[in-house]
Amino acid sequence: MNHLIFSRSGLASIAVAIALAVPGAPHAQDQAGAGNWDMIRQSMFAGRTIEEDGAKLVELETPVRAEDAAVVPIAIRTRMPQDPAQYVKKVYLVIDRNPSPVGAIFTFTPESGRADIETRVRIEEYTNVRAIAETSDGRLFMTTNYVKASGGCSAPAGKDLAESMARMGRMKFRVEGEVKQGEPALAQLMISHPNLSGMAMDQMTRLFTPAHFVRKIEVTYGGKPVMSAEVDFTISENPNVRFYFLPRGPGELKAEVVDSNQLKFESSIQVKPGTAGS
């Protein structure tokens, strides 16, 4: 039940709490937004030690300077085997100076095989980007990179919004390379969705176009969870996630997606270890 409550309101409530706590604060603070981070740390990890482990357990790959602030590719890789006795349970993505700094919370299981994730994000201002890994025994590890990018969240979704809306909900789901029994396999899920941030102006109404974004992605293999993500408009238009799962025999890899308007989208593929994925 606790989990359910969290999954319904988790990201949004954290974002709101931070927004209320530091009205207009980012501009008054240092370039990297350390003040925001203090607030996030307090609200999410109060009283807990976070090891800044210099990429020993969690590695974060970001461009130093984004080519397009609305589509910044990032990769988070963890270096702990997903052993049922001890594994990486969650990975938090925090972008200190974004309007919604806690952009994504990824949940992994031993069935993930590897707690790695690749996606693309929007960045509004020059900022620190943090990947925080939480192990099943409750330890926290963090790696921080500074990224130069601006305007990614307030840029309108879509170079062609009409086309983007027409295609909403279409998905492309595939497994990369050869899938071998008992070895982590890489999957890519693409979701066509404008992921509107609510920060771009509508010409007719002179109001902001309402936010409308993917908020939850749940992937199972053979009915068991392998990766779930609580996300918001921090993720770029047409959300794209790459993640691992551990095939133990043939099964269905299934993705369920829910957006902020409660629209649901589904996609699945049949996987047979030992053969190439479809």
């Binding site: 305007g151 307030s154 309108p156 771009a200 102006m201 509508d202 010409q203």
Partner: peptide
Amino acid sequence: LGAALAARERGYLDR
């Protein structure tokens, strides 16, 4: 043009 400008106005002016 109007819709495109409205959506980008803030970013363009800031820059």
